[in-house]
Design a binder for these strands. Structure first.
Ligand SMILES: [Mn+2]
Ligand SMILES: [Mn+2]
Ligand SMILES: [Zn+2]
Ligand SMILES: [Zn+2]
Lengths: 131, 131
DNA sequence: CACGAAATTAGAATTAATCTAAATCTTGAC
DNA sequence: GTCAAGATTTAGATTAATTCTAATTTCGTG
């Protein structure tokens, strides 16, 4: 369980009440929430937080490397507190996005991509989670 | 070079002038165009085509298996006439999306995903194309 | 030709995200 | 302690992708 206040300070971010509430809403959240979902959660943490502030703060958190965005859902960006390399499984029934540990999968054949300078990659899997 | 008229008929789609223009705009287009880009292209092919018809037709083409959508660009869906399994490389400078042949890469370790029923997957690579 | 179904359309509506410009905090220099 | 400069927050306007609506046009068939 990450301490939001410490986490903000460690990333050189001025910790305001709003930013702490937003950080708490997203840092331990493994569901890959949208900005709107983070807004709703942050507002429950008894702070006065506007939509604009949530967008501003999330953009800042991404710039500072606290979070990443993932382009994985149609129509909306999702935020990911897992900044390590990892893959994603998307449940086609529910839309749930699940982290897959980096070392569960091995991608071979990248020597075929000599003309490409690869900065990062991931496997995106779609299907149904059993049971 | 695919014949748009024949292609529509083969997929059981009534070939109207608008649909032919839209199909011509997208079928040989390897750039992963957006609906808006397809609209502009289709309108050049001297047909009267509205934005609503482009969205209607693209949705139909996807339902009929002529095209796929890819969730790969922020803020907008892109259309892909390549319906075979393949991977994608995204040039971070230009935003260009490039098809990577399926057999260039091998994903190993899927036995770690026994709890998941995988319907499809792809590798998404980001970086810079050299030269 | 006539008629019902299919297709097309302009524009309204919806939604995610960004922008604007004013109000409110912080902070550090004095 | 005071206060200006800069940082932060905000409501509401704006933009952009997409969908919806309801009216019009076109098509296929008898
Ligand atoms: Mn979500
Ligand atoms: Mn494009
Ligand atoms: Zn993730
Ligand atoms: Zn493709």
């Amino acid at each position: 369980m990450k301490n939001a206040l410490t986490f903000l300070q460690d990333h050189g971010i001025q910790p305001t009440a709003q930013r702490v509430a937003i950080a708490e809403a997203v840092l331990d959240n493994t569901t890959h929430p949208t900005a709107e979902e983070i807004l709703v959660d942050a507002q429950k943490r008894c702070a006065i937080v506007s939509r604009a502030t949530v967008y501003n703060a999330l953009k800042l958190f991404v710039e500072k490397g606290m979070l990443r965005t993932q382009i994985i859902r149609e129509g909306t960006v999702v935020y990911d507190p897992n900044t390590q390399n990892h893959h994603h499984f998307i449940d086609e029934e529910s839309g749930t996005i699940i982290d897959i540990p980096w070392d569960w999968l091995k991608v071979q054949g990248k020597q075929n991509l000599e003309e490409y300078d690869i900065h990062e990659y991931q496997v995106i899997l779609r299907g149904r989670k059993k049971r």
